[in-house]
């Protein structure tokens, strides 16, 4: 083998090495990129809307298209409901009454049914609100107790309610008939 042939062969050999190194580097780069893509992304449209409210939002509940939170207005909490597809606020006048204050809220999957615990004077009420009909229904607990937190099933047919009885927290399940 002449010197020139040997030189060409070395170039071929090393170019194969370089190619494989480049391929490995490419794979590493892709995996690093895909790892960083795993980072959850804040939804700017919703978050910048929420930041616009000075008194802050708390206790979020998500349905497929709605977000319910509690916000503080004039030293008491009220319900704030928005459609996150268009960032339009949905009026909740029926539930935001001056003599009551919400403490827990939960939306069914389609957002049609809203379960709510609200303070009225010294008592707490468990409420089911149906948006379409505007019906507000007080739900009775199985035993006496102070309801503090509620979760509604996605279909709006069952409630799980945290209830304080004699200083102990329990969970009541309530199946809704209608």
């Amino acid at each position: 083998m002449s010197k020139k042939d040997s030189f060409n062969w070395n170039i071929k050999k090393y170019s194969t090495y370089f190619k494989s190194i480049l391929a490995i580097n490419g794979l590493i780069l892709i995996s690093i990129t895909s790892c960083s893509m795993e980072r959850n992304r804040p939804i700017m449209k919703i978050n910048s809307y929420l930041r616009g409210y000075q008194n802050g939002h708390k206790k979020p509940s998500l349905s497929k298209n709605l977000l319910a939170t509690l916000i503080n207005r004039e030293d008491r909490d009220i319900i704030h409901l928005i459609d996150i597809r268009n960032m339009k606020r949905i009026p909740m006048g029926a539930l935001n009454t001056p003599n009551t204050e919400p403490i827990s809220i939960s939306l069914s999957a389609n957002g049609e049914r809203i379960a709510l615990i609200r303070k009225r004077g010294i008592t707490s009420q468990l409420i089911l609100y149906q948006r379409k009909s505007g019906r507000i229904q007080e739900i009775e607990l199985k035993q006496l107790g102070n309801p503090t937190k509620v979760s509604i099933g996605g279909k709006g047919k069952i409630l799980a309610v945290e209830v304080t009885r004699q200083g102990k927290k329990e969970i009541d399940l309530i199946r809704l008939n209608n």
Binding site: R41, P42, I43, G56, H57, K58, S61, L62, T69
Partner: peptide, 19 residues
């Protein structure tokens, strides 16, 4: 999506993340 309530000082705020 996931909605998370944070506290910063005494002020709560909510952010929503795309999953």
């Amino acid at each position: 999506r996931i909605a998370i309530q944070f506290s910063q000082g005494n002020k709560p705020f909510v952010e929503v993340f795309d999953l």
